[in-house]
Design a protein around this nucleic acid. Structure first.
Lengths: 142, 142
DNA sequence: TCAAATTGTTTGGACGCCAAACAAAAACTC
DNA sequence: GAGTTTTTGTTTGGCGTCCAAACAATTTGA
């Protein structure tokens, strides 16, 4: 009942994958607080569509490194919430993607939340450290 | 057909959460190749149980920062594969966890796979960089 | 002794990953 | 131009992980 026996982390704590998961979990939790109602992944899509209006589903999926088939359901939901619209392209296989006005508005709000979020996260890192973290992460992503 | 219009990443690429996801995805993909048949999370559990035989479900969940309720199903599966066993503790609410012999064997094999995996990942980083990456990730995880 | 907390569990929901298949449309090949 | 191949969006199904709320059994604390 007294002191719980100490837990030895074993090899676990030295594993990159494990440490990445812990970090990502912490970041996502903070994100959820700062940007309610929109998951990191979804905001990412909105940001990307905003920066590339008319982008195709496949190219979007490729750009954010997600599966084409995963994209369908997510976009369905965003469309159902009237945040984006699809429009058939001249290549009639494709759907072009645009933000609706509501989507723009929500994105703007989300971006303010993200700013707070990033600020809170970055508070634990100096600017140089933050930059280097991104650099090292980039090296790992290939 | 020629040059696809360039996609501008927008604010996305500067976001820590996004970059963490990309890195983790890359690491997990490589992991899946190096350690077939066992997800990173599950190997983590085996490692932890091995280092802390008799550990309780709740304490295990807490240690690896997962939910108690998530743990149940995963442990069910590991037990169904005869990799671990549960045994009721003297506090009769608890289940103590141990690796079975098969679990030990599989873990040993997995650890060899992980060694290859980490080596391949670490190839993109110097030892110092790797150390610093872990340090920075730790800072973020809180 | 009685109320409160803990443990494992179930249920239900959400998100994201992947693989295999399919029809429509476009791009190639001959 | 006819026929094959490729691409695109889609559906389906499965897996892993996360979270919240509830519950019975058990232990702890008042």
């Amino acid at each position: 009942m007294d002191a719980k026996q100490k837990l030895t982390p074993g090899a676990l704590y030295g594993l990159l994958g494990y440490r990445l998961r812990l970090a990502q979990q912490a970041v996502f939790r903070d994100f959820a607080v700062s940007v309610p109602g929109l998951s990191p992944g979804r905001v990412g899509l909105l940001i990307f569509i905003d920066a590339n209006p008319g982008v195709t589903q496949s190219r979007l999926a490729e750009a954010v490194e997600r599966d084409r088939s995963t994209m369908v359901g997510v976009l369905d939901q965003l469309e159902a919430r009237s945040l984006i619209k699809r429009r058939r392209g001249e290549d009639r296989r494709t759907n072009g993607l645009w933000l609706t006005r509501a989507g723009c508005t929500l994105l703007a709000r989300a971006l303010r939340g993200i700013a707070r979020h990033e600020k809170r996260i970055a508070a634990r890192l100096s600017a140089a450290e933050r930059r280097q973290l991104l650099e090292l992460l980039g090296r790992i992503s290939g």
